[in-house]
Amino acid sequence: MSRRLHMILGRVAQAIPVLFGVVVISFLLTRALPGDPAAYFAGPAADAASIAEIREALGLDKPLFQQFLFYLRDLARGDLGLSLSTGQPVMQDLAMRLPASLELTLVALGLSCLIAIPLGVLAATRPGSWIDHLCRVLVTAGVSMPTFFTGILLIYVFYYLLGLAPAPLGRLDFLYLPPPSVSGFYLIDAALAGDWQAWLGAAKQIVLPAITLALFTLAPIARMTRAAMLSALSADFIRTARAAGLGQGKILYGYALRNALLPVVTTLGMVFSFSLGANVLVEKVFAWPGIGSYAVEALVVSDYAAVQGFVLAMAVLFVLLNLVIDIAYALIDPRIGLS
């Protein structure tokens, strides 16, 4: 057990230079953004003197390196600065919007796994058959759809033509009150509060964006499941199991799938961080109040603090995610930690 603890601590240590790199790059990137935040803060009517005053107040007149040190100091205090566009502390904005993005991504990934893993297993047990080809074409079509296009298409069909889905305007129709915030996930909070009407409302809102995102993530998961299952099924130990007369179910799920899960878990991690990025477009199409749309808005108006805060939040999330994957790996594979 201590061996694994050691490994996890090692991973955390490895993440530190990565986080520092992210801080540096995001700092430089935001400074390169066009536009002058001092001018923006001062408002359109300001004269040169007041802009200079504000620039000084913001510390923007200092050399870049000094600005960076100030930034680090603020970071250490947990202060991500004020957002230009919302006027709120970035930390508060992120805390409000992050659960929306996470909820969407998690629902989409769950949906995707529910479809992709059985599909991959099905294809792997019948390689070369028409089912295999069909699976391949379907998931390839899924990953070939630009998420913004899928979203628009779904909205057109299910909202405009069929009227089945609610208007694509955020997490909850204004008819309902958002549930009291516990986890920030509406589906969980509404269930906790016993407000099933709000739950249904939130569920209806999330279906289309989640499907949009899930379609995009089907392919990597299904492909990896198929490939991993194929290689597991052709392994020697499966032959041993068959020669010992073990049943088909035990061989397929107890032996092959558990071994095949290892690479699938790795892929899941990659897909997760990937779909956090793809979220940006989906959130824009569905007016979803997540951090993706927040970042887009911030980028467009050169909102330093907001962009940096967003990037940092994503990087921390990424590091945490990798930790979770490593732990999941260690739980599945007893060999971890030795080599």
Partner: peptide, 8 residues
């Protein structure tokens, strides 16, 4: 070694 399930 390969004839045994590596994670069981």
């Amino acid at each position: 070694r390969a004839a045994l399930n590596p994670i069981r």
